[in-house]
Simulated assay, not measured.
Amino acid sequence: MIFHQFFEKESSTYTYLIASEQTHEAVLIDPVASEIESYAEKLNEHNLTLVYSLDTHVHADHVTAANLLREKFGCKTVLHRHSGVACGDIFITDRSAIRVGEILIEARYTPGHTNACTSYVVDDMIFTGDALLIDGCGRTDFQEGSAETLYDSIHQQIFTLADETIVYPGHDYKGRLSSTVGHERLHNARLGQGKSKQDFVQFMTNLDLPYPKKIDIALPANKACGQA
């Protein structure tokens, strides 16, 4: 498997390239519109054909590259069916699977940060978007967010995986690249050490976070697959 982790500095967003060494077919998870040339260079470097663009949710902090990639490479745009995005090509549900050569990508529905959050499991890796972050999680006060739902999603869909499963988040603000399910289950400041749902909900309710800086630009654009 060919794998590469990209980082977009302004929103601290990670984008992931996964590709088959057998068929040279590739997918991008959570691509950012401003970084499309970096993706094109990496695809060309490995002689890859981009077949799918996967968004873990409708982002509020950056504009997705989904439509630009579809125009440039002819790939399919993949989103959860609850995303409210009409311009997608493929709408997935919990435990839907996408195959790229020898690679199976399993969707796990992990709502709570938004109503359409989806994590993707590939072998011993899980790409969690904003549902589970390293030592944290996504906020739950916008886009039909729910702390109760997020708690259940993480415990039922992510923390049930093997301890050694590598967690690749949608963002990190401290330069960390990955974690593991076992580490987050034990040490995550918001969810670790068996914290109760009541404790988690109270913690999330009291965060008092500022209004998202780019939501008024990013959200309408991303509901149109990244078109202005």
Rank of each mutant, 00 (worst) to 15 (best):
H4Q: 01
Q5F: 08
Q5C: 12
F7W: 03
K9G: 08
K9F: 01
S11T: 09
S11N: 09
Y16K: 14
E21C: 04
E21L: 11
H24E: 10
H24M: 14
L28D: 05
L28K: 05
P31A: 15
E35K: 15
A40Y: 05
K42F: 09
K42T: 10
L43S: 08
E45Y: 03
H46R: 10
N47T: 12
L48A: 05
T49I: 12
L50F: 00
V51S: 11
Y52D: 09
T56M: 06
V58H: 00
H59P: 00
D61K: 15
T64R: 14
T64Y: 01
A65C: 10
A66W: 04
L69G: 10
L69H: 08
E71I: 10
K76S: 04
T77A: 09
T77S: 06
T77C: 11
V78K: 04
V78I: 03
L79Y: 01
H80L: 15
I90F: 04
F91A: 03
I92W: 00
I92Q: 05
R95Y: 06
R99V: 15
G101S: 12
G101W: 08
E102D: 08
L104P: 01
E106G: 14
E106L: 13
R108M: 03
R108V: 14
P111M: 15
H113W: 02
N115G: 14
A116K: 09
V121P: 00
I126L: 03
F127T: 00
T128Y: 02
L132C: 02
G136F: 03
C137A: 10
R139E: 11
R139I: 13
T140D: 05
Q143C: 15
Q143I: 15
Q143T: 13
G145H: 05
S146F: 03
E148P: 01
D152E: 06
D152H: 07
S153T: 13
I154D: 03
Q156H: 04
F159S: 02
L161C: 04
D163G: 09
D163K: 09
E164V: 15
V167R: 11
P169M: 14
R176K: 07
S179D: 02
S179R: 08
T180N: 05
V181N: 07
G182I: 07
H183N: 07
H187V: 15
A189C: 12
L191H: 00
G194R: 07
K195Q: 06
V201P: 00
V201D: 04
Q202I: 15
F203Q: 12
D208H: 10
D208C: 13
L209S: 11
Y211W: 01
K213M: 08
K214M: 14
A221C: 05
K223D: 02
A228Q: 13
